[in-house]
């Protein structure tokens, strides 16, 4: 089983063996973070460009650390600095960057399809770090790795994803990944935050938090963004957190004792998660972050470290 794609754009297009390959590779690379000298020479001489149009400290830093631990040269382009702010189009920026011969471009953008568009136009590999509400493949991969580490397996597990599913690329990527690996997914939230026709993707839908979190092995809470109120999708944060916020009481009343609480971060403490749950014993949020670096190392290694993917380019 080898990685044969030039890019990592979506989970939807991967088959289960490819997903497993990335997670297995990530698990093997994780120990690098535990060494005293956190470096291996694998991507020495390779250039990785982080092209982040949306503000994101944690994902960008995660990719940066991953690249540096593999000895790559990592360059960061952030939206607020550079010509991006001057109105240069995404395509122009990417072409200019390509002229500097990077090996991989990691892109995060607010428009769905942006990564796919870049991948079509750039010769080098493209990693989608989040395109609008479409997909965030490395997030789903690190989530799957985290669950597998804790539960020992993935097949047959039940997961509830709670919150603003409609606008969530994390939800979409996880739904695809989990379904492919034999997990059952329920999405839960007020109807205005559930996307139309979501059942077509093989998930169950719930509009009550208590029902959704009962009997599941994993509860993944999503961030609720301020903008959803102004768009008239929910009346107030207060009402949302009253009916959809996960508190310790709710957890104890309905969920299993061995349930895992996950969140892609950053957490709005007091809105979707109470502080006791976010920082409590059920939470694996910090493990997700650690696994994030391992998964991103795996992705960079598979895309840039061997000839196979380069030939696909």
């Amino acid at each position: 089983m080898a990685w044969k794609r030039k890019d990592l754009l979506t989970i939807q297009e991967l088959d289960p063996a490819e997903i497993t390959l990335v997670i297995d590779t990530a698990a093997s690379l994780r120990e690098i973070g535990g060494r005293e000298i956190k470096k291996v020479p694998t991507l020495r001489g390779k250039t990785i460009v982080n092209l982040f149009y949306e503000p994101s400290t944690r994902t960008r830093t995660s990719f940066e650390i991953a690249g540096k631990w593999l000895s790559a040269d990592v360059i960061n382009f952030a939206a607020s600095t550079s010509s991006i702010g001057k109105g240069e189009t995404l395509l122009d920026t990417a072409r200019n960057i390509e002229a500097m011969s990077p090996d991989v471009v990691v892109v995060r953008h607010s428009s769905a399809g942006a990564a796919e568009m870049l991948a079509r136009h750039l010769r080098c590999g493209v990693v989608n770090a989040g395109d609008g509400a479409h997909e965030h493949p490395t997030q789903a991969l690190l989530d799957l790795l985290t669950i597998r580490e804790r539960k020992g397996h993935l097949d047959g597990l039940q997961v509830a994803i709670v919150g603003d599913i409609a606008h969530s690329r994390v939800a979409r990527s996880n739904i695809h990944g989990m379904r492919k690996l034999g997990m059952t997914v329920t999405v839960a939230g007020p109807p205005t935050l559930i996307p139309p026709h979501v059942q077509e993707f093989g998930v169950k839908v719930s509009h009550r938090l208590e029902d959704a979190i009962r009997d599941v092995d994993v509860i993944m809470m999503l961030r609720l963004q301020q903008e959803r109120m102004t768009a008239g999708l929910i009346p107030s944060l207060r009402e949302y957190s009253r009916y959809w916020g996960l508190t310790l009481d709710r957890l104890r009343a309905s969920a299993r004792a061995d349930v895992l609480i996950m969140h892609p971060g950053p957490v709005n403490r007091g809105v979707e998660l109470s502080p006791e749950v976010a920082d409590g014993p059920y939470s694996v949020i910090l493990e997700q972050t650690g696994n994030g670096v391992a998964v991103r190392m795996a992705v960079l290694f598979l895309l840039a470290g061997t000839r196979v993917a380069q030939e696909a380019a």
Partner: peptide
């Protein structure tokens, strides 16, 4: 991760 032939081999070594 330390091999000197990663860029040359056409099959992909598994870590």
């Amino acid at each position: 991760l330390y091999r000197d032939d990663l860029g040359l081999k056409t099959d992909q070594p598994v870590v």
